[in-house]
Design a protein around this nucleic acid. Structure first.
Lengths: 92, 92
DNA sequence: TCAGTATATGCGTTATCGCTCATATGTGAG
DNA sequence: CTCACATATGAGCGATAACGCATATACTGA
């Protein structure tokens, strides 16, 4: 029961196109918010909004560096799982 | 771009707790809607509603047998992917 | 044909979500 | 301290999603 809820909220966070773009924009590196904004073309407010969701679900973490905040994907295995799903969705 | 949209809508369908319950209720077998209703405790209307979403995303398929409709998960690999995610979400 | 069972669908309501606007907080430069 | 830049947050709006209710369709058996 509680497993289901956790899994569903994980999928919910991943179900947003812009959040997926943000995740792939980060990739394996740690990048400042401004880089993600430039990459995705989304508004600053919007990127910040989505990064919060990703942070709350612990999919990314933010590290302060001067006036910048560098965000990175918490666990690289997430990218692998995303690829698995992408490949699976592509077939048929 | 289009990849992202497809992936996100796949996750969107999976982001509903009741739909996850329905999927795990089906498992590897083909079961009539009434069995899923009994299993999940959801209303008939609600189960039908969710099964439609799963059908539209081609995650399940329904086969008529008399006055029953047996639903099955289209590709067993989906269950495997779900387990991968569940295990991944459990750690940490 | 009629009654009963199994499933699907349209409508209306409520809740949730993504987004933006305005504003706040924090940091480095001068 | 003040200004500019980088990021975060709260309020409000419009779109979308889930759910229940009522009803429709489809099949079965008497």
């Amino acid at each position: 029961m509680e497993q289901v809820k956790k899994l569903s909220s994980l999928f919910k966070v991943l179900s947003e196109p812009n959040r997926l773009r943000i995740l792939t924009s980060l990739g394996l590196e740690c990048r400042p918010v401004s880089a993600v904004i430039a990459d995705t073309g989304l508004s600053q407010t919007n990127v910040s909004f989505h990064l919060r969701k990703l942070r709350e679900m612990k999919l990314v973490r933010g590290e302060k560096n001067g006036s910048f905040v560098f965000y990175c994907i918490s666990d690289p295995e997430l990218l692998e799982l995303l690829n698995r799903f992408r490949e699976w969705g592509a077939k048929s």
